[in-house]
Design a protein around this nucleic acid. Structure first.
Lengths: 335, 335
DNA sequence: CTGTCTAATGTAAGCGTTTACATTATGAGT
DNA sequence: ACTCATAATGTAAACGCTTACATTAGACAG
């Protein structure tokens, strides 16, 4: 990508006494090229120090082999690890990852989607389903394949590689209920622009309703995914209160934040108050007491999403969604 | 990036009754174009639904605006957060991040460097200095600017945005020594292919020597950055031993791994044994007791690295290195 | 009204690949 | 030795943009 009269495929062709087409074929390990010719070409490449020009290649081949991913943040281990798995699979298949983070902001995410596509992304990994329909229209018009991870829904609208957040939340709630908790609080993630947070919250509430356990509006708090905020949510009179015996949290960050604050306030967990998280990131195993939580298959999602995108790019347009199954992990913070 | 007779800049030019040059000028917010012409062009772009072709743009402009970063892993929060900060700065400047991870393996990292450059990276963020000289030669030959983060060294060889790992390690060691510990173990990261791990280990040892505190070879263990391995290292008879009163760890993951195992074995921390970490990632605030550790300015490194790369790409070839200062954070695991 | 200078726009030459199609070499079967 | 299928290679037309340079328009001084 710089000035200097650069070495082109033509120079290689001349030195190897073949045509540019043959050089191209050698370099893209294509069929039908005699072994001795190939060797001649390779050695010409080496003596000249030739490197293919990326722009020219992209222009001619109409693909970049760049895959974009837009995630809320890398600061949450769940996404960091998911993306890591995603990238590993892409990498061995010869694709490269373009990353951008939206900080859970819808408009920012939108910008990033347009940006990544205009910077050459051949396909996209998106987290969650909730976004302006125009974006899907845009992606369709430009024929950019994409996978929606961290969420699963029946139907052919999109390719989902994820799980049912609502059901998973219900699963967690059932665990709490069967231990006879009656006075329960919810610290949910901000649901305004986040379908996963919303589904989880709905799941919590639904289960409670199914079991006729009363929950008033002020027992449901929303907080952003930050320890401090979760702590503050705990300090709300409704939560921080001898009546309350269990808190359901929208994710592990929230749960750990609440747990730490509860401990600081002198509560014994889980004796006086139980706390359950969601995600099963590493810290849930590190806090004491260890967090009871819902295990989310983040690495699997990353890997399968990558595989799915690769398939799409190779022309299998079946768009098979995949539903993964989270499961509850009982550790120490629930009794 | 697909078939379909696509809409080109020529179509836009025709509709707006201007030349392609003018269209290009409008789209790249360049100087010297009349406001009314610009409006005509913009509206033509909109009615046609035109999007610039990435490959053509790159080929003609000789730059991609893609910045590559190769980090050991995103699973360690220190890199995840650093990269996050890096990306945020790039993003507002109109650059996009290409990421790849090396799993701390030198040969893999090497491959990734070549891969990212051949996939269009205009510049690179590298972690640590230690690598095959051929790579630096290659980067120089292809005129790819790069920044080395997480390490700092005097000299004009490279642009460093980092800190002196050895001195930081000495700083931590001094803290331990001044609390009168005499029987100290070291759990270092694998130093074979990792200059930062090596510098830290050397720093630990140097300080001990300076204070005439004996440390035998078997009091120094290397482990990879994984809780379990650190735990196993702790279980070594040398560490897990009433004589030992302090353990210096190569990073927080190691420290937390050791701490958890020590607790499991019934040790009281820090009464019976002190543990100090390195990095100051979030978990060091979450374990109990909270980890005493060295704070590493990871977000700052990310931001400054981005800024530095942007400057280089804008033609300021000064290559100013920047030394950041880590500091010790005393919490609860050291007494 | 002319000359001069600057701002705005146009012209067209690259940029360096890939790949459809055309051509030539190779070798098996007779 | 001669076909004829097939493998190997060559030819050259895209691909769609940017930008150096050329040209024209417009403003203003004299």
């Amino acid at each position: 990508m710089k000035n200097k009269k650069s070495i082109t495929i033509l120079d290689v062709a001349r030195l190897a006494k073949v045509s540019t087409a043959t050089v191209s074929r050698c370099l893209n390990n294509s069929e039908n090229v005699k072994i001795v010719t190939k060797q001649r070409v390779i050695s010409a490449v080496e003596t000249l120090g030739y490197y293919p020009n990326f722009g020219a290649k992209v222009l001619a081949a109409k693909k970049t082999n760049l895959i974009g991913a837009i995630i809320p943040t890398m600061e949450n281990a769940i996404f960091a690890a998911g993306i890591q798995a995603f990238q590993e699979v892409l990498s061995v298949a010869g694709y490269t990852l373009l990353v951008s983070s939206s900080s859970y902001q819808r408009d920012l995410e939108e910008e990033q989607i347009y940006a990544l596509v205009s910077r050459g992304a051949d396909a996209l990994l998106l987290i969650g389903e909730d976004r302006d329909p125009n974006i899907y229209a845009y992606l369709k018009q430009r024929q950019i394949p994409y996978v929606i991870a961290w969420n699963y829904r029946n139907g052919l609208q999109h390719t989902f590689i994820g799980f049912d957040n609502m059901r998973a939340a219900q699963m967690a709630t059932e665990e709490v209920i069967k231990r006879h908790h009656k006075n329960i609080c919810i610290i949910a993630g901000n649901t305004a622009e986040n379908d996963r947070a919303r589904d989880r919250k709905i799941g919590f509430i639904k289960s409670l309703e199914n079991h006729k356990i009363a929950i008033s509006a002020n027992q449901i708090i929303e907080a952003s995914y930050v320890f401090e905020e979760a702590g503050d949510a705990f300090d709300t009179p409704i939560c921080n209160n001898p009546e309350t015996t269990a808190i359901l949290c929208g994710n592990d960050v929230l749960a750990v934040g609440a747990l730490l604050r509860a401990r600081k306030r002198g509560f014994n967990i889980p004796k006086q108050i139980s706390i359950v998280g969601f995600d099963d990131i590493e810290i849930s195993n590190i806090v004491s007491p260890k967090l009871s939580t819902v295990h989310v298959p983040h690495r699997q999602m990353g890997r399968h999403s990558a595989q799915s995108i690769i398939n799409m790019l190779n022309g299998s347009p079946e768009m098979k969604s995949l539903e993964l199954k989270p499961y509850f992990v009982q550790r120490e913070s629930l009794s």
